[in-house]
Design a binder for these strands. Structure first.
Lengths: 269, 269
DNA sequence: CGAACTTTTGACAAGCATCAACACGTGTGG
DNA sequence: CCACACGTGTTGATGCTTGTCAAAAGTTCG
């Protein structure tokens, strides 16, 4: 994805949240940006600092996280290509979380002031972004339910489901297989577990034949069973179904294991 | 608090999020509303249904929650007087959580369409509400950290701190003492624990002399220690300090146990 | 005064954390 | 090209935190 394609995707995504006028769309496509490649572990945003830049993620993954005083780390969300990093903190004085690159990323960097100017000139853009902030809150809520009330197996399965549907909706899917953005330690951070326990749960999910998972790829072997384990239903993502193949994915019509591309990497399990 | 006072408080709170024009403020004060008293357990909003009304909470408390398929319940947030219930779901098709009355409440009911009309006519109102949605996301993030990475004692202490600061900031404080909105079972729902365990942790907090807590009142005996236990720092609330006594409260200057009103109810501990 | 809810208590089990060590793969520099 | 270091994944032993189940005691309200 090139930056200009990304700007188109951004306009498209926002338009699905709230209809944009032609002029608003044009204005988005004219956003000044700077291209950059960012290595794994690079911080995009630091908790407590003002948000000066937004990052349109073109490829790779980024993780939002916060830490406790004694060093415990909690990942709040994983951003995938197409997401705008930083947008949801743009109107408050200080960033409420860190954002760090999980997989080497390419980004289009846009000045926060440019985004803010856009929202002032085009109220429909502000509205679409506000709706996006609300949808993000909905995802945080579901994650709270996930971590507060589901056990380790369910939590992990739920995250696998979420990333599957989101990547599919973003056009990044490859049948039942998709790119896995985190190490087991990061998965532990995301699920409120330890990496040791995550490792054991993953082994059980593998031996149960539910999924194959390596360090860079996941393949879902039995979507219905995974969904059942995870207690997953995608409504909380507030995806706009017309956009992509989510409906089909969730209905498991394109996910027959029969017609998928060969694994690009050997997977345990 | 009467409804019209509540509308003033609303305008004031929004103005702190983003400056409102005089006309915008006037428009808020002219919002048509209907007054109502709501009993404990009454649902204001149900997950999955469209949000048709917003509720300006005048007195009492409300809890947002979601449930897993097998009945586990997770409380996401507790709304206190002055909060607008439903605002953060107003632009997405369906409510992402339930909202239920925790303590008999008085509310001003405003049609969602009226709020939306306001945000269209006055972009500064939209901006202030968007900022409020962002601050709400920040609170959800901290709660995720709380539940994902802190133990039972810390989680409970953290919630006590949060409610103390928020009630103080809303002008509902009474020195180190404030109204406690939840039963132990609901506290368990909010912290991702069981009520049995919550009960035991509360007993320890009492016997440690950190706080006194009954079913309707809490009194914080040692704010500094409670803060330390909870790993609490109020920045994530994104309160506007100029509004209220938060700074003082957090600096523990008005919280000397010496000058507070007598307990309105006997407290265990 | 009784019904419904809430708090408290005890015994026991289980899930998950902790600690420590080892295996494995990958990239890097000698 | 090999040796090495580093990050990541895997395994085992052990114990603590928290959940589960069941019942009693206390509280609120009609």
């Amino acid at each position: 994805m090139t930056p200009s394609q990304a700007l188109e995707a951004l306009a498209w995504n926002l338009d699905l949240r709230a209809a944009l006028s032609r002029e608003a769309t044009q204005a988005i496509l004219m956003l000044p940006y700077r291209f950059a490649r960012l290595d794994r572990r690079k911080f995009l945003i630091r908790e407590g600092e003002p948000v000066a830049r937004c990052y349109l993620l073109l490829s790779g993954f980024a993780g939002r996280h916060k830490s406790t005083g004694d060093g415990g780390r909690q990942m709040l969300a994983i951003d995938i290509p197409g997401n705008i990093v930083g947008l949801h903190n743009i109107l408050i004085k200080r960033a409420s979380y860190n954002v760090q690159v999980l997989r080497d990323a390419r980004v289009a960097i846009v000045a926060a002031s440019a985004v803010l100017a856009l929202t002032i000139d085009y109220p429909d853009i502000a509205r679409a972004m506000w709706a996006d902030t609300m949808a993000d809150g909905s995802v945080l809520s579901e994650r709270l339910l996930n971590i507060g009330r589901r056990d380790a197996r369910q939590r992990i399965a739920h995250l696998v489901c979420e990333l599957a549907v989101r990547q599919e909706a973003a056009g990044l899917g490859n049948g039942p297989e998709y790119e896995w953005p985190v190490t087991q330690e990061e998965l532990a951070d995301a699920t409120g577990l330890t990496s040791v326990h995550v490792n054991r749960v993953l082994q059980r999910l593998r031996s149960d034949g539910v999924l194959r998972i390596g360090s860079r790829q996941v393949m879902i072997m039995d979507w219905e069973r995974l969904k059942a384990i995870a207690d997953f239903s995608p409504a909380y993502l507030h995806l706009n179904m017309q956009a992509q193949a989510v409906v089909r994915a969730d209905a498991c019509q394109i996910w027959g294991v029969s017609h998928h591309a060969p694994l690009r990497e050997p997977l345990a399990g």
